[in-house]
């Protein structure tokens, strides 16, 4: 089968999105022909979409940006709509992932992906929304042990031209309940603050972290 992976991340090849799809393609059989296209290229030249003409299935992946898809992904979707014929009647899968840990923050945009599939005349074959993806920038694969295995399962669903497995979808898309300890850490211990402060210090701008560059200074 022929699969097109459409990467909507503004970070392109260096994205968390790309890392997730690499987990999936690494377990795909030789009979699966994968073509990857990137929103960062298509926004400059939408004719690149012709490269994925003739694919059987399409996997679209993007990070959550200000509560929806990134602007560059929306531009890509508008281009896909212009080339509707390439996609008509084909299967489409989505993976949405967010920096915040709650997968529920992507529920609204997930609804939009279903609407988009129907506007495109495509067959919506499953969607994942996963929280906490920015950890992919720093954490090794084994940190994501079970999640990685579940993505491998989804890869097989795609190869078999079947919808995403229900349990796998639920596992990746559920918003995990925070226990008292995690809530305490988030509210009081500022671990996440330590992460950003370290980078700010390395960049020599820690003292300026609360700057308000666009505020009009009041005259004394």
């Amino acid at each position: 089968m022929k699969l097109a992976i459409i990467n909507g991340s503004p970070r392109g090849r260096k994205s968390n999105s790309n890392r997730i799809t690499e987990w999936m393609t690494s377990v795909m059989s030789e009979n699966t022909e994968v073509t990857k296209v990137f929103a960062v290229d298509i926004c400059k030249n939408s004719t690149l979409l012709k490269e994925i003409q003739g694919c059987d299935s399409f996997l679209v992946i993007f990070p959550l940006y200000t509560d929806a898809m990134p602007g560059i992904t929306k531009e890509l979707m508008e281009s896909m709509y212009e080339y509707k014929n390439i996609f008509l009647g084909k299967q489409i899968y989505f993976i949405i992932h967010s920096g915040f840990p709650e997968a529920s923050q992507s529920i609204v945009v997930e609804k939009y992906t279903k609407l988009f599939a129907s506007l495109m005349g495509m067959k919506y074959s499953g969607g994942i929304r996963m929280g906490g993806s920015e950890a992919l920038q720093i954490a090794p694969d084994n940190y994501f042990g079970k999640k990685k295995l579940v993505y491998e399962k989804l890869a097989r669903n795609i190869e078999n031209l079947e919808p995403f497995d229900y349990e796998a979808t639920e596992y990746l898309s559920r918003t995990r309940k925070r226990g008292v300890i995690v809530r305490f850490i988030l509210n009081h211990m500022n671990l996440n603050g330590m992460y950003w402060d370290r980078i700010l210090k390395v960049n020599g701008v820690y003292e300026r972290r609360f700057d308000r560059p666009y505020e009009i200074k009041k005259k004394d």
Binding site: A68, G71, I72, K74, M77, L115
Partner: peptide, 16 residues
């Protein structure tokens, strides 16, 4: 546009 905010709108939101 395609049933959602235009890409022009969305890219500006991101940059906020």
């Amino acid at each position: 546009i395609t049933g959602f905010l235009s890409a022009l709108t969305k890219k500006t939101m991101d940059r906020m």
